[in-house]
Amino acid sequence: MSHGDGTDDVHVYWTRPSYEPGLESLLDEVERTTLSRLHLDRDRDRYISAHVLLRRVLARHTGIPEQEQRFHRRCVLCGGPHGKPRLLTPGVDPADLVAVNALDTPQVNLSYVGSRILLALREAGPVGVDVEHWDKTDFAGFGAVALTQAEARELLEFDVVDRSPARATWWARKEAVLKATGHGLRVDALNLRVSAPDVPPVLLDWTDPEIARPQVTLADVPVPGRYEAAVAAAGHVRLRVHVHEVADVAPSPL
């Protein structure tokens, strides 16, 4: 919700995978197609749990029951049906892009890794969220693919024991920005610079030669364990982040 003083609320819900038989019945055709490509039980459980959480949260915020929710997905780059899901107002035809673009339903974004699933919800505009496990970004060559030269120098200023969470924070902040703008991997991580993990998050530079620098507002999200997370909202706003732990996605309502 956007307030008269310029404050913009973003709700971040986090949970752990908690699959129960039958939950996949809530998934739509696009999600079932993606699920069919996942062969490991832990990946399937995490995917199902994440998309059930999506429906639980949207039901709470909109009053539309989980079973009645329908989604529009459209990539901002290629137009394909793999963009961020947008909840359709009942009665809106997904093919009617004018109607879809005029929707006043909340915008959402999912991220999950290991035993953490995060969902960000924003009433007022595009949002992106990302969660990273320390181990996933702790590999040789990370800096070469993920950090600008300035960021790589800043990383060396951290004590060795602090570099794993620092890497994860850098990556989570960058991914949150790219997911909020809808560009994803279209923009190389080396073409944007964010602030160092020991200072408040902000997009400092954007050097993509084809895409103009976006306006985004960043915030870190506290997540327990060896995880770092961030959320980004399109536009320059006073971002107020509300973090909610969901013990189990299976029961309804939240």
Score class of each variant (00 low, 15 high):
residue 1 M to Q: 08
residue 1 M to R: 09
residue 2 S to G: 00
residue 2 S to V: 13
residue 3 H to Q: 13
residue 3 H to R: 14
residue 5 D to W: 07
residue 7 T to E: 14
residue 8 D to K: 03
residue 10 V to S: 02
residue 11 H to P: 00
residue 12 V to Q: 01
residue 12 V to S: 03
residue 15 T to L: 03
residue 17 P to S: 07
residue 17 P to L: 11
residue 17 P to E: 06
residue 18 S to G: 15
residue 18 S to I: 02
residue 18 S to M: 05
residue 18 S to W: 01
residue 19 Y to I: 06
residue 20 E to P: 01
residue 20 E to M: 06
residue 22 G to A: 08
residue 22 G to H: 08
residue 22 G to W: 10
residue 23 L to S: 05
residue 24 E to C: 09
residue 24 E to T: 09
residue 24 E to Y: 10
residue 28 D to S: 06
residue 29 E to I: 12
residue 30 V to C: 03
residue 30 V to R: 07
residue 30 V to F: 07
residue 30 V to A: 13
residue 31 E to D: 13
residue 31 E to A: 07
residue 32 R to P: 02
residue 33 T to Y: 09
residue 33 T to C: 05
residue 36 S to C: 09
residue 36 S to Q: 12
residue 37 R to P: 04
residue 37 R to K: 11
residue 38 L to Y: 13
residue 38 L to I: 14
residue 40 L to W: 11
residue 40 L to M: 12
residue 42 R to M: 06
residue 42 R to I: 12
residue 42 R to Y: 13
residue 44 R to W: 11
residue 44 R to V: 09
residue 45 D to F: 09
residue 46 R to A: 15
residue 48 I to C: 08
residue 50 A to T: 07
residue 51 H to R: 13
residue 54 L to S: 04
residue 54 L to P: 00
residue 56 R to M: 08
residue 57 V to E: 06
residue 58 L to D: 00
residue 59 A to Y: 02
residue 60 R to I: 01
residue 61 H to M: 14
residue 62 T to A: 00
residue 62 T to Y: 01
residue 65 P to I: 02
residue 67 Q to A: 15
residue 68 E to D: 15
residue 68 E to Q: 15
residue 71 F to E: 00
residue 71 F to Q: 00
residue 72 H to S: 06
residue 73 R to G: 02
residue 74 R to P: 02
residue 74 R to I: 07
residue 74 R to S: 14
residue 75 C to R: 00
residue 76 V to K: 06
residue 77 L to M: 10
residue 78 C to K: 10
residue 78 C to E: 10
residue 79 G to D: 10
residue 80 G to C: 10
residue 82 H to M: 12
residue 82 H to W: 12
residue 82 H to R: 04
residue 83 G to P: 02
residue 85 P to G: 05
residue 86 R to L: 15
residue 87 L to V: 11
residue 87 L to N: 04
residue 88 L to I: 10
residue 88 L to Q: 02
residue 90 P to L: 07
residue 90 P to G: 07
residue 91 G to M: 11
residue 91 G to Y: 08
residue 91 G to N: 06
residue 92 V to I: 15
residue 92 V to G: 07
residue 93 D to E: 03
residue 93 D to P: 00
residue 95 A to D: 14
residue 96 D to I: 11
residue 98 V to I: 12
residue 100 V to H: 03
residue 101 N to Y: 08
residue 102 A to D: 13
residue 102 A to Y: 03
residue 104 D to C: 12
residue 104 D to P: 04
residue 104 D to H: 14
residue 105 T to D: 09
residue 105 T to F: 09
